[in-house]
């Protein structure tokens, strides 16, 4: 199963999303209201593996662990994700452990689960600068390392129509 996180707001995208996300764990901006991670570390030290914020996003760690691929569809924002996609990613903190391990000479988190995901990120935005593309590419690579992903891909599209053509 794939986890698909997207920030597509236009109701016109719904038919495509329904087909693309059929049978997958789809998390969109049109779902329930999401709260921001408060950095309390409760997901590590109070209810290990589950966020303490009581909303529909508290089980994202376990939900990701049930998937073999994570797909992010996001407006490229300053070379990163849009606030919603970033928010969902922040709430995935219980997917990893608080403890550290060394990877490529740097400290990273140990993984909670044995399973790993492939990380596919589709950025869209009509006037992205070269610096934003470079930052986005490196950010996905860094996230992929931190989440222990088994691989990653990043691609850029000028608009949602282009992106849908590739994914359909």
């Amino acid at each position: 199963m794939k986890m698909i996180v997207h920030d597509l707001e236009n109701a016109g995208e719904l038919p495509w999303l329904t087909a693309f996300g059929s049978g997958q764990d789809v998390i969109g901006i049109d779902n329930a209201v999401i709260r921001h991670c408060t950095g309390c570390f409760g997901c590590w030290t109070r209810t290990p593996g589950t966020c303490v914020l009581k909303d529909e996003y508290r089980h994202l760690g376990a939900r990701l662990a049930a998937c073999d691929e994570m797909v992010l569809i996001s407006r490229c924002t300053y070379g990163g994700y849009s606030p919603f996609v970033c928010n969902v990613l922040n709430r995935m903190l219980p997917y990893v452990l608080p403890y550290f391990r060394m990877l490529k000479g740097q400290m990273h988190h140990q993984l909670r689960y044995e399973q790993t995901v492939k990380f596919n990120v589709y950025f869209y935005g009509e006037d992205l600068t070269a610096n934003e593309r470079q930052t986005a590419q490196e950010l996905v690579q860094a996230n992929s390392l931190n989440l222990g992903a088994k691989g990653f891909e990043v691609s850029f599209y000028d608009n949602i129509r282009q992106l849908k053509e590739v994914l359909s």
């Binding site: 329904t18 059929s22 997958q24 030290t45 290990p48 593996g49 760690g61 376990a62």
Partner: peptide
């Protein structure tokens, strides 16, 4: 928090969720 170090390594399972199907 009355937990042991090994408790921090718990692996909660997939919660019940509703997946979208092609018919909406």
């Amino acid at each position: 928090n009355s937990l042991k170090p090994k408790d921090l390594r718990r692996r909660p399972g997939m919660p019940p969720i509703r997946l979208p199907q092609s018919g909406g």
